[in-house]
Design a protein around this nucleic acid. Structure first.
Lengths: 188, 188
DNA sequence: ATTTGACATCCTACCAGTAGGTAGGTTAGA
DNA sequence: TCTAACCTACCTACTGGTAGGATGTCAAAT
């Protein structure tokens, strides 16, 4: 892993734990083992780093979602796999980078917003695709537009991550996500 | 409104918009019209201000929820009123103070955590009460424990606030909350 | 084969601006 | 005369960022 990737990984974790205003270049430098000004060689400004972070996170997730998409399992099992992705990172107190940046949105530079919107659009799109698939295979039953359900699913997931971490109650995340999956299997 | 209250109001709005690490005493001072060091007369430290903020917000909400509780309307209409509270503040780009602090939780002083947990516990308790009421009056039908549904409702609400603001799409908030209310009225 | 130059990657030293906070004094009202 | 509520002046630590130099690598010119 080259330095640029190392920086991105460390910075991503810092954002996921502390938010975009909750860490500094000094924090990254210490963890990655180079001096603070050297970071500017790889990312000339914190804003540019932020943009790269979103891009990187989005494409990482996109890859994993692609993998899940083609698995020979039912749509609701695919949704469970999607949830499991976030569940794993929750063990290390990481919540979704997109959700974290969404909280900080009013303090972010405008140049970061398009990437952030694309992240959410991508998530909604994937969820909608899986929900449609589940509907046509009769594994999922929904009332109303699929995209509305995708929005609800994403909202619940993001909120559950936040609340579970703040309450120190990861079991609550499991119960909430189990409940929403169960509701999709029946009548939605 | 005395100065202490004014400070609390301004600071609350700053937290709701920008997070606890997204504003400074200087920001408050400018908006409230006194000098920065004078703030320390009212709140000796930012942490103490934070604690007061949570306490204040919790009791404000508690009052409004108490008002809703006694209205002569069905349980699902009470939930709609609860959601409307947050919907109103979303118009000014304010999201829930509890949700905002939950995002920042790993950067907060330990002394702020009990208050934050109490906020969520109070919300869950109220939602559970209303859901039970709706169940016994047959306006709401749930599968599984009421508190699980309360958690899910709160998660969805918090997530929907975040995402709606970040995407600049308040209509999405309306659709998501309408969907969750509709699902409670039928089979949950 | 060797020198040269260009570029990448890192460094030390430094900067202005801002963070939260303190010291100590003034003013006004009970 | 005490106290609440404010002020100016100031402090240290940290913020993101810059300037300019050292080192290494690698390819083209000699």
């Amino acid at each position: 892993m080259d330095m640029r990737e190392q920086i991105l990984t460390i910075a991503q974790h810092l954002v996921q734990q502390r938010g975009f205003n909750g860490f500094s270049y000094a924090d990254i430098a210490e963890e990655v083992g180079i001096r603070k000004p050297s970071l500017h060689h790889h990312f000339p400004s914190k804003v540019k780093l932020g943009i790269a972070l979103i891009e990187n996170y989005t494409s990482q997730l996109e890859t994993e979602l692609g993998r899940i998409s083609v698995l020979p399992i039912t749509a609701d099992a695919k949704l469970a796999s999607y949830i499991a992705l976030y569940r794993t990172s929750l063990d290390a107190d990481y919540i979704c980078l997109g959700g974290m940046l969404a909280s900080d949105v009013l303090t972010l530079d405008d140049s970061m917003l398009p990437g952030l919107k694309r992240f959410f659009a991508m998530s909604i799109e994937w969820l909608s695709k899986i929900l449609s698939e589940g509907e046509s295979m009769q594994h999922i039953k929904l009332k109303g537009p699929v995209t509305d359900h995708a929005h609800m699913l994403l909202s619940t997931l993001q909120g559950a991550l936040m609340i579970a971490r703040a309450s120190g109650d990861v079991a609550a995340f499991d119960r909430t996500t189990a409940l929403i999956l169960a509701s999709l299997r029946r009548k939605g």
